[in-house]
Design a protein around this nucleic acid. Sequence first.
DNA 1: AAAATAATGGTCAAGATTAGTCAGAGAAGC
DNA 2: GCTTCTCTGACTAATCTTGACCATTATTTT
Lengths: 155, 155
Amino acid sequence: MENKSISDIIEAYLKEILGDSAQVEIRRSEIANHFDVVPSQINYVIKTRFTIQNGYLVKSKRGGGGYIRIERVNLLDDVNVLNSLIQAIGDSVRERDAFDIVRTLYEENVITRREGDLMLVALSKQALSIGDSKAEDHLRARILISFLNRLRYES
Amino acid sequence: MENKSISDIIEAYLKEILGDSAQVEIRRSEIANHFDVVPSQINYVIKTRFTIQNGYLVKSKRGGGGYIRIERVNLLDDVNVLNSLIQAIGDSVRERDAFDIVRTLYEENVITRREGDLMLVALSKQALSIGDSKAEDHLRARILISFLNRLRYES
DNA sequence: AAAATAATGGTCAAGATTAGTCAGAGAAGC
DNA sequence: GCTTCTCTGACTAATCTTGACCATTATTTT
């Protein structure tokens, strides 16, 4: 149960200080220092755990007074967010990214647990493997976007 | 009955530490070390004894902080309906037949209306067309059967 | 102003740390 | 003996951690 990597801990910390706020601003070097890791590890945590698929937008600025801003967003509510998401999907998605999106929809209460599980099944490697890995990712993208459109326009 | 293999012992141990919890997280190397076997034997035990047919779901993560998580799930009672449907599907279904099956599930109260709608999205020609009509029907069969297998249990 | 300097964050690739796969050897059951 | 189950280890894959080097912005100096 206590097999957390330092990345997991940093992720939890960032979500903690994000709390109920819409966004939070950090200094990369401060966080890195706080957890005694190299600064680029903060980039790693953000890149792997605060993606649009996970329901986060991240902006940053370099130079003096620089910052990293993490913003929590709803995938289907905001047209711009949905567009970013669809753009991120493009015509090809890996299983992992698709799973993240479904989990985010569940956490936003857009879908129930069971609905999410069914979606995951239809997006899984297991169900979609058709020999060609690229074709599989294309197919997954089509199914996922169909799901999103269905959810978007239904209610 | 007295000649337990080491795999049997590891199985019993895992079920022991699972206890009444819904799930348990282990480190493959720790367990392997504890019983003085090669790590891949843990995979063998899990693959042969913690299957979904036996009511277990297994997830894992590699890399630093990696783990294997074993979760116990409740198998449901609609097995008869599901089995007969899987029989009927075989390895190929046309869109129309898939739609009929989903409707049957709805009428049998195995799924909700909304769950059915999502399933239909993933089974539609629109989402699945991949040029080859036969391949499409095979694919649809795999997705549909995956759906049905997922409906066998709740988590 | 323009140029130099300081103060940020970004990228990428190598190495470390886990778990997964698979084929074959060995053991047990029939 | 033959078949099935168990066990092993070499090879593969995924994820995390680190550090050298790069890019951008603000501030200070000339």
